[in-house]
Computed example of a mutant assay.
Amino acid sequence: MNGTSFQQDIRYWLRQGNTVNHLLFWNIVIFLAFNIVRLIDTITHSGIFAWTYDQFALHSSITVFITKPWGLFTYMFSHVGVLHILFNMLNLFWFGNIFREMLGNQRVLPVYLMGGIAGGLAYLLSYYILFQHSDGLMLGASASVMCILVAAATQVPDYEIGLMFIGSIRLKWLAMALVIIGIITMFDGNFGGVIAHLGGASFGFAYIKLLQNGTDLAQPLIWLFNTRERRAAKPVVKKFKPKKSPLKIVKKADENTQSRLDQLLDKINEKGYQSLSAEEKAWLEKVSKEN
């Protein structure tokens, strides 16, 4: 496959209108950029990788987070490890498309972002309560992906998917298994990451339950991201050429009616009613009924 064909395939893939594809694309691009920076740092020993990691990561220390609040958004698009991004992107592809099919493409990005934010806030809160004087750094889309997974499982719990070596399994059991595995591995050195996973999962569950009761927490972001809806909702002021006022048209029509009525009355007064033509008599009768 040549470079031109590859670029055309990527463009076609992104033009399908599938937000899951766009999320996969940007996660992969940032992953590649991170590792290019790491390679440069390995060669030059400039420390640029540590600086980049520090800028994109979510800091658990509140005092550091206040100086770098953008980490609450950038962390959910950033990976360094191959297995980390592979696992997250496979889950995003599988369960993101189930979510998209059941709940619509317009909700994918808002729920991904809100799940990531919920996971990030859970991470910050847990470290503030338990490890106030430490500053951990977190990267990865796991909280966002877990949110998408649990949201899909809550919406369609009996949806069956096929897994290698296992066979068909209902989505609710798979989601439950991943949550339990997360809880079990909490004490294996990834406490903050697992807390973020559980925060994203909890938000995904709560989002669907509220949505089923008529409250869509994603609606403000849907409105924000959907430019067509914004154009439709925003009043459009159009320049137009001055036209005749309807009031003036009515007024002119009334003046014409009165003028003709006066002419016919004068004719009757001078020559009598029989002098009117059939059309004039019909018109006069019509005007008298309207008045």
Rank of each mutant, 00 (worst) to 15 (best):
S275F: 11
L217V: 12
P242R: 03
L92Q: 05
I166W: 03
L130A: 08
S245H: 11
G71S: 03
F65Y: 10
V80M: 04
Q274F: 15
S78Y: 02
Q258D: 09
A143D: 04
A151F: 09
M102H: 07
E101V: 14
P220I: 12
A233F: 11
I40A: 15
E101T: 14
S288F: 02
E290A: 12
D135R: 08
I43Y: 15
Y127T: 00
H22F: 01
S61W: 07
I85H: 03
V20K: 05
V80Q: 03
G192E: 00
A141Q: 11
F77W: 04
L149K: 02
L178F: 02
F31K: 07
N21C: 15
I222V: 15
E285C: 11
F34W: 11
F93V: 02
V236A: 01
Q132M: 12
L86Q: 02
F191T: 14
V37E: 03
N2Q: 08
A122R: 01
K234F: 06
P242G: 02
Q55N: 07
F93L: 04
P110G: 11
A253C: 01
L247A: 11
T52R: 08
L163E: 13
A50P: 01
I181E: 06
V156I: 06
S46N: 09
W70D: 00
F165S: 08
G200Q: 13
P69T: 00
H79K: 07
H22Q: 09
K234M: 07
V80P: 06
G115K: 01
A118F: 08
G214E: 05
A201S: 14
F99A: 05
P157Y: 06
H84P: 07
N190Q: 14
D266E: 14
T227P: 01
S277A: 05
